[in-house]
Amino acid sequence: MSVWRAIAAAALVAAAPALAGEIPPDARRSGYSFMGPDTRAMQDDDTSNPGMLFVLDGEQLWGKKTGSAEKACADCHGDARSSMKGVAARYPAFDKTLGRPVTLDQRINLCRANHQKAAPLPYESRDLLALSAFVAHQSRGAAITAGDDPQAKPFVEQGRDLFMQREGQLNLACTNCHDDNFDKRLAGAPITQGQPTGYPLYRLEWQTLGSLERRLRSCMSGVRAQAYDYGSPELVALELYLMSRARGLPMETPAVRP
């Protein structure tokens, strides 16, 4: 057996069996498949998808010079349509300098600090959501591959542990609903698999665009747990695990969800 064939075979073995309680790759479904036809229609047409308003704002910001370096994103990265294609599908990504994974939001703020010499944009601010929506929109249709980097593996594991960890006054783990009970109804609302395919996304509940971290924090409030802070290592690890758990699903940014 050639070395290459051995590696390929090993990779197959490693990738094939899902861990107990986890959703096998061919059964993974975007939250889109749990929505009604009207909400799907809202996402499908760019001129009726309110998330596109943020993508437009992000496009403007991409070309706008900012910070004491007087640089725009476009000055380094050029046309986002080619330079950012597929990038968001790999995030959170391992940063060699920091020795840990960073989210797309954190990458944008690292660029601002290191290259634009600009102040960081606050989490959930309109400008940060707009920029990350614009960047992630360039990956629409690309298959999610986050977590494939071997250096990211320990952080994927950390996120998986957090996903399995019961917490809060209601003593529930993410896995209790999103691995074991998807397709059932919590009161009238369908429980999804929690696949983060379309972030940042426009939630009808929020009436605005929001990040995966905002969504995770609201789930934590739902089980009456103390939510982790924005940008905390725990939220980043959870985000990384969720993205690796959604491996192969296409990006939908900006998705629309109830």
Binding site: D46, S48, L53, L56, Q60
Partner: peptide, 23 residues
């Protein structure tokens, strides 16, 4: 702040066209 406008670029005289706006 952005707005999304959808108006057909071309139409025949007398056509009834749909206009959509999102702001």
């Amino acid at each position: 702040m952005a707005a999304l406008i959808n108006v057909p670029a071309k139409a025949r005289r007398g056509d009834v066209i749909e206009i959509r706006t999102l702001t």
